[in-house]
Design a protein around this nucleic acid. Structure first.
Lengths: 340, 340
DNA sequence: TTGTAGGCGTTATCAT
DNA sequence: ATGATAACGCCTACAA
């Protein structure tokens, strides 16, 4: 069943059928009705390959999600869905493995789907440097700061990672903690980890506290298991911290488990702070204190920026959205009474 | 950059270029080398739309994942990836929202990608009944039992949901619990929930225990929040259970939080058991006792069945894989000493 | 082994 | 408003 068959069935020419199917102007109401009716009756399905082969551009916005496991992205996609629902655009979401090249993938999808714009959920600057030249539609990187990338069609919206990490550590410092261990990601591989680490160092230096990475820092992957493992190593090394900041909630959860297995209570013996603001955190016992990223703000700003670029040719820009401080049960004030 | 350009550049005809690119026979080593080299140099990217438009079938296997949030599926995709990696097939993974029609989506992708077979991760029998007739390649539903569906090209591999739920409840019974609350999904909407509920009832009836759904059962969605909410309702209603079985780990986690907020300790005051075996469960405090689904078994059996159907035309079949019992910290034996 | 040409189903550009 | 027709980029007979 092709549009040719539909043409034969209705007596119209293929051109008219195509126009009717695509809501193009210059189709009589009579023709439109007859054709749509015939299409329904013979439940006609358009051949996407042929359509996309011929089309010069679609009316779709592509969302490339890098890292299926990232819960934050799941929420964000939902927010984006509803933001786009009110427009004339159609959303195409592509989920991919964290370790693949999202820019190369997007370039491929550009040729296939010819989207009007792209939203990258997560991204690695190195990949953009290498492959972004092949993409010429407006793009927004969400979650990562891309201001250092010199592309006129690339914007970014991110949480201030330096500030967020600094705030986490300063929150712990304000509660009287002086020796704070850090569990983070690989600063070489991950742009985000580098910024968050930078924020930690700023907090220590502002408060004139010593920080010995050798003793109190571990760089691992963002996972329960790695957070757990990192904490075990920290404990085994005899590090005498009273608080821990994990650069992601999942690592914080693993760390808490390791602490408990070592006989340490949270927050009585050790305070633990995460970063991300996963919904899960507030269901844990104890509830996980964390610096939360604002999924709604991230989503709404990036959609706004993308649409503005698509529709008005607005120049690229790089924004930061505010984060929240969730002082929950996993942290404790260890200052002596009356010392405040 | 098209194969025409490649032809011009190398001096060969487009037919030869196409054959070289697709590893077809009847291409001289010299031509193949020259063409592949030229393709690399001008980093030629094939036009998927044109290719698929012409193609009658690909060499790909499609994986349709229904429900991105389901952590189990994330693990399973990875397992499937590595199982397929050793074959001559290519994997195409499509993630979709839980509430969309996975069969209609698969039918659409069949027309587009022309896969040799399909793996459904999750699925709703009603959708198959309605739309599966349009699909004629071998398919395997993973996680759900499809034996009641009369399609010759549809197999299924699932955990024995009735047995798993029965086992969960019987485990609690064996520890001395007599009044056990159940938190589950909607038995009308979810095939899986219906089976698990059936398993619960079997456990009660086998042990001649009364079970009053009105008092001790809540059907909600599979989420932290809904598990939390269900437990609050159970507690508010004054139900006097000593144990809870939640039909999914995520609900169990929400339930534990609600218990703690009500001043009940787990497992001292109430035992909690989940189902799924999420990695997260073993990082919680207390570690979550659960009936675990075997992701590896599910993945390897379904791939084996699919390949057998694709390659040898093996008839459809419906298998069940064993589940595990993880007696972890969230459950407690409440029988008096020496009574055993 | 290689070249040539027709067609896949659609859209877009012309006429009409 | 509608119809005819030329691409789109590729694959695949078939011919050479």
């Amino acid at each position: 069943m092709t549009i040719k068959d539909l043409a034969a069935k209705t007596g119209y020419a293929v051109g008219t059928v195509s126009r009717a199917l695509n809501d193009h102007p210059n189709v009589s109401e009579k023709a439109r009705k007859a054709i749509l009716q015939a299409a329904r009756e013979s439940d006609f399905q358009i051949n996407v390959n042929a359509k996309q082969l011929k089309q010069t551009h679609s009316n779709s916005i592509l969302v490339v999600v890098k890292g299926i496991r990232n819960e934050l992205f799941g929420e964000m996609v939902e927010d984006i869905q509803s933001l786009i629902a009110g427009t004339r655009y159609q959303l195409v979401v592509d989920y991919m493995d964290e370790d693949l090249n999202e820019v190369a993938r997007a370039a491929q999808l550009c040729r296939e789907k010819k989207p009007l714009g792209i939203l990258f959920l997560g991204g690695t600057n190195a990949n953009f440097l290498q492959d972004f030249a092949a993409i010429d539609v407006p793009c927004v990187v969400v979650t990562n700061d891309a201001s250092s990338l010199p592309f006129p069609n690339l914007s970014s919206v991110s949480t201030d990672d330096v500030g967020a990490a600094r705030c986490a550590v300063e929150t712990l410092i304000s509660l009287g903690h002086r020796r704070i261990a850090i569990i983070g990601g690989d600063c070489v591989v991950s742009d985000t980890s580098r910024l968050r680490y930078e924020g930690c160092l700023q907090a220590f230096s502002r408060h004139k506290l010593d920080f010995d990475p050798e003793q109190d820092f571990r760089d691992v992957h963002y996972s329960y298991q790695d957070g757990y493992q990192a904490m075990r190593e920290l404990l085994a090394a005899g590090s005498q911290f009273t608080a821990v900041f994990a650069m992601a909630d999942v690592m914080a959860i693993g760390a808490i488990r390791a602490l408990r297995e070592a006989g340490k209570r949270v927050p009585e013996d050790v305070s633990v702070m995460g970063l991300d603001g996963l919904p899960l955190g507030s269901f844990l016992v104890p509830q996980l204190a964390t610096i939360s990223q604002s999924v709604e703000a991230l989503a709404s700003r990036s959609v706004a920026i993308l649409l503005d670029a698509m529709e008005n040719g607005a120049p690229s820009c790089h924004e930061t959205v505010p984060f929240g401080i969730e002082k929950r049960e996993s942290i404790r004030d260890i200052r002596k009474q009356g010392e405040k």
